[in-house]
């Protein structure tokens, strides 16, 4: 039976990419959930654009402190070793390669790893936030998104039709249906959601996929 991954499962799969000691920036939504699923035995340092490093798990609105938030406006917890600094410093860290991994949402990802995630063309106005700086400077960029739009449009495309956030910047795409790596040779299908075949994924993916020799079902 075909079973697409839910948001928590996607976040869990994304969290597996985080290595011990990584400095990590998480976007809003599914990426933020990844902070709940850091693999046992690994410790990562969370970074946020508003000027904080080393914070802990998300807090409920009722428990939160308005002076301790992440850039997505979520309340986070204090941790030993946490530090505060200015946004210019936070972005200096990003552009200079001090952030090892970022996990972001996506509207479209192209065959060569271009990312579009800051503006829906039909709205005519967009929130760029820190997305373009992360696209330009973060070490490894992982995108979590649904494989197709609500009305079935492909989101993994030959060329982005939406305004781009960064060019040739994405390393890995984790969708509800598959895990796809961006390589110099093209998009490599590494993993599929339970019950899906490579043909199923190709049918909802515009560029030609290279199927990994060891293609497997997503394991967590």
């Amino acid at each position: 039976m075909k079973q697409p991954m839910d948001h928590e499962t996607m976040a869990m799969r994304a969290a597996r990419e985080l290595q011990d000691g990584n400095v990590v920036n998480l976007g809003i939504g599914i990426p933020g959930l990844a902070s709940n699923f850091i693999p046992e035995g690994r410790s990562v340092i969370f970074h946020s654009e508003n000027g904080v490093l080393g914070f802990g798990p998300l807090l409920d609105e009722s428990d939160g402190d308005v002076d301790l938030i992440n850039a997505g406006g979520q309340f986070v917890s204090a941790m030993p070793g946490m530090s505060f600094f200015s946004p210019a410093d936070a972005f200096a860290m990003i552009r200079s390669g001090h952030i090892d991994v970022t996990i972001m949402g996506g509207l479209q990802v192209s065959e060569r790893g271009d990312l579009a995630n800051w503006m829906m063309p039909n709205r005519g106005i967009g929130n760029v936030g820190g997305s373009m700086d992360l696209a330009a400077g973060a070490g490894k960029i992982i995108v979590t998104m649904e494989h197709v739009t609500k009305d079935g449009q492909m989101k993994i495309v030959r060329k982005c039709s939406y305004p781009v956030t960064g060019l040739a910047c994405v390393s890995l795409v984790i969708t509800d249906l598959a895990v796809i790596e961006v390589t110099p040779k093209g998009l490599v299908l590494r993993e599929v959601a339970p019950g899906y075949t490579a043909q199923d994924i190709q049918a909802v993916t515009e560029p030609k996929l290279i199927v990994a020799k060891d293609l497997k079902e997503v394991s967590l």
Binding site: E49, A88, A90, V128, M132, D133
Partner: peptide
């Protein structure tokens, strides 16, 4: 609309006597 890191650095530059700068963002 300004990318946030560019915005932060433009503010920093404005207070630092720097007219302009080059950024990859």
């Amino acid at each position: 609309v300004v990318p946030q890191g560019t915005y932060a650095e433009r503010l920093r530059a404005g207070g630092a006597g720097i007219a302009a700068f080059y950024t990859p963002t």
